[in-house]
Design a protein around this nucleic acid. Structure first.
Ligand SMILES: [Zn+2]
Ligand SMILES: [Zn+2]
Ligand SMILES: [Zn+2]
Ligand SMILES: [Zn+2]
Lengths: 144, 144
DNA sequence: GCCGAGCGCGTTATGTTATATCATTGATCA
DNA sequence: TGATCAATGATATAACATAACGCGCTCGGC
């Protein structure tokens, strides 16, 4: 290696910064999707005080595949597998916001990208399936 | 027909209100995704002055399937087919925001819903495929 | 005719999500 | 020592969305 400091200057797998660790820890503890501002509330006690700090860390963590964004909810969630590469989907209960991450196989991913028309060369897929989880389904079936 | 006024009280295919027509017209003219506030700017001249008016109309139009929301962009677009029923996806250029609506067949839709795990009974799918359109792909290949 | 119900819409105010920008700090190193 | 760079802190504001109240119209009952 050329120099142990200056952290390699490149792309692959740098260490998490303290803020990134705090925010990833917060999301992992929660195990649920959280809004950026909900995260901010939870990490205030550990010294993070402003929205940009949270968004910076979230954006870095998303680039690493350790945090995903639920587009249909404007919320963030820790990757259910620690880390992944963009081949995932989500199933979301519309009543209680319970979320399950669905890993996509390469073939499935390719098939989804293949739905794009020739005019657009596809790169990434955002797939969110909304429905009712078991308990919310039961609750809805029997009102009282 | 039972009565031309009071618009039938039920669900199917009521007439558009004046505001709904204005806003749908705006989106159809644009042929591109627009944010709610961009729509507001465009329809100010026709008397619409506040965000809730725009959001009310958009929500109604979405229920009818005449307008769709691009979740990954917080933007709205007129249905490419006049009207549809929830079986659609989008391909979006990440550079110029060009959007193409992709109709999904019943089988495709069913296959997507089938990706949901047993814990969540799936109802609707949000599928947005991002990539580069032809012209943006060229522009990126040759920088200057 | 008068009234109440329902609805579309106007309006005010506020809540929520996200980013632009500049200042500060601390480590590295010529 | 002082330039440089990356990370973070901090201020301010932009962008997106909704809650809540009230008004005026049309319609149907009386
Ligand atoms: Zn993941
Ligand atoms: Zn649920
Ligand atoms: Zn459509
Ligand atoms: Zn493009």
């Amino acid at each position: 290696m050329t120099s142990p400091h200056h952290h390699a200057g490149g792309s692959p797998a740098r260490k998490l910064s303290p803020n990134q660790s705090k925010i990833l820890g917060c999301l992992r503890e929660a195990g649920e999707p959280m809004s950026a501002y909900a995260i901010l509330d939870r990490v205030r006690k550990s010294g993070i005080a402003h929205p940009p700090t949270v968004y910076r860390a979230l954006n870095d963590l998303m680039k690493r595949g350790m945090v995903h964004r639920l587009e249909s909810r404007s919320a963030f969630i820790a990757c259910g597998h620690g880390e992944c590469d963009g081949r995932f989907a989500f199933a979301i209960c519309r009543a209680c916001d319970k979320v399950i991450e669905i890993p996509l196989g390469e073939k499935e991913q390719a098939r989804l990208l293949g739905l794009a028309p020739a005019e657009i060369s596809p790169e990434t897929v955002t797939l969110e399936i909304a429905g009712l989880c078991e308990s919310c389904g039961l609750a809805q079936a029997s009102p009282a």
